[in-house]
Each structure stands twice: as C-alpha cells, then as structure tokens.
Design a binder for these strands. Structure first.
Length: 276
DNA sequence: TGACAGGTACATG
DNA sequence: CATGTACCTGTC
C-alpha cells in the first residue's frame, strides 16, 4: 500500500542512530536487492518499505498500518513545524534541519529500545547493529515475513532473563552483557513494571528507567525519546556535547524549543555524526 | 600503539 | 554531591 507524506526519509532515519534494525533489504544471501528498499524489524514485526520522494510503499495491509505503523512513524505530526520553529539566525541548527529534514522521532517498542541503548554505550553504530542482530539471531523467535523470508524477533525480557553470561558471550556484548541480564531479571521479576513506565511523565519515566542496571542519564533519555516519545528529552552524548561546546557556548536555547528539544537533538546528532 | 565509539557503576574526598 | 577510573570489543 502507498502513502504520501512530507518530512519522512527512510534512509535518513535508518542512519540516524535511533533505530538499529532498519536496513537496506536484499543485499544478503538469497534475496536480490531491490533498489532503495528497506526492511524494518520492530519487536516481533517485519515491514518492507520503498520510497520515491513523498510517496512511500509499505508491505503491510491497511489494518496493520493503522493499528501500528502509523503511530510508529509519528505519521500525524508536522515535522515542518518543528523545523520552522528554529531560530533563522541559528545557522548551525538551520543547516542541521535541512540536512536531516526527513528524520522523525519513532515510537519504538520499549523493551527492545532499553536493551538496544544499553548496548549502545561506548560503542559504534555498526557494532551496535551487529550485537543486536546476534542477540536476536540466537535468542529471538524465528518468524517468516510476508515474502517468506525468515527473520528473528527481539527476545523478550523473560527469554533474556533466563540466560547466563556464557550464553551471551558469543554476542560479543562485552561488559554490557551483565547489565542486560540484570535489567532483564528486574523486568521479568516485576521489580520494574514497564507497562506502568510507559504511562508516566517524562521525569517520572526517566527516574524509573535509571533504576535499571546499565541505564544512566543518557541511555534513559534515549529510551524516553525513542520509545516513550517524550520529545522534550534531550540525550547528551559525545556528539551532542561537541555540538553544544562548539556551537552553543552560551547554552542551548531550550526555552525557545520547550517541549520538543529532543527533535532538534536528533537533527543535531544526525548532522554532527552522519553528515559532517 | 593507542584513541575512540550515542556511558555507567562504583569508589573516593 | 562532585570527581576519577575501570570496563569488553573492534576498527582505524
């Protein structure tokens, strides 16, 4: 099925570092690469996408698109309005918005986002993707997508909680493996209620998430932004720290962007780490 | 070779 | 509470 939209670029989103299982389709063994086609995996779902300008093709039926993917892509939000809010005298953010005008803040599955961003710490994106693929490949459930291609779901907390460090060793997670086991056990044993967390305000959700082993200030902000859609969350990593240091020595104008600073964070991150 | 990659836990003062 | 340091792993 086809849909039209502005300010959504699958390629930009795939490179934006907010999701790690959105990649060019084909490319690998068996399936021939269809130009410009991507496959997105989220929790236990698979979706193929193709884009031609403002027209995007999705492999799913209307019902699944309405009930899941529409919200996932934050379809009904006008990202042009966020970009228009940027101070025209702010040359840096103006350029960042232009370069990443197709980036959106996704609504990703909470558990997958927690584990993915624990893995992300002190790590680079290609290796993060490899680690996640290894975790899913070994411990996810095998399913078949609409084309008959096999894929693996993201293993749930109970599945990961049952593992040992030895089980995880082949995934090459390094010191993050014990963080993930501890966090999975907290979730599986009900020491934290993730359904409840998803209903909390930004500040409350962040505080709850930081109780998890391996989830500090920055990772909690990433989870709030990329899973819970608290777009006021503003994760500060090495790239954003560099941006703030070099382009906002008097401080970032949070007041001007109150309530959606996280969107600008993504434009900044993409510009700083992917474009430049 | 050593620094670096979307930081955090833990130990000190 | 603020600062310092070790930490898995792969790549340049």
């Amino acid at each position: 099925m086809y849909k039209r939209i502005k300010n959504l670029d699958i390629g930009q989103i795939s490179r934006s570092g907010q999701c790690f299982r959105l990649n060019p389709a084909g490319g690998g063994e068996g399936g021939e690469a269809s130009a410009g086609e991507y496959r997105l995996l989220a929790a236990d779902r698979a979706l193929y996408l193709r884009q031609n300008g403002e027209e995007i093709w999705f492999s799913c039926e209307e019902e699944e698109w309405e009930s899941y993917w529409r919200a996932y892509f934050d379809w009904d939000t006008d990202y042009g309005a966020f970009q228009a809010a940027v101070d025209p005298e702010d040359a840096y953010m103006t350029a960042a918005c232009r370069a990443g005008s197709g980036i959106r803040i996704l609504r990703q599955p909470l558990w997958e986002t927690i584990v993915s961003f624990i893995i992300s710490q002190q790590n680079n994106i290609p290796r993060i993707k490899g680690c996640i693929e290894a975790v899913c490949g070994r411990f996810g459930e095998e399913k078949t997508d609409c084309r008959g291609q096999a894929y693996r779901t993201f293993p749930n907390a109970h599945r990961l909680a049952a593992l040992s460090l030895e089980d995880l060793a082949p995934c090459r997670l390094g010191y993050r493996a014990r963080y993930i086991l501890s966090t999975a056990r907290m979730a599986a044993e009900g020491e934290i209620d993730l359904d409840a967390v998803s209903r909390l305000s930004y500040g409350e959700a962040k505080a709850e998430l930081m109780r998890l082993t391996g989830v500090g200030n920055k990772v909690a902000d990433c989870i709030c932004l990329f899973a819970l859609h608290h777009i006021e969350a503003f994760p500060v990593d090495t790239h954003i720290a560099a941006m703030l240091r070099e382009h906002y020595p008097q401080g970032f104008p949070f007041a001007r962007y109150e309530g959606f600073a996280g969107v600008l964070q993504q434009y900044g991150f993409y510009y700083e780490s992917v474009v430049l």
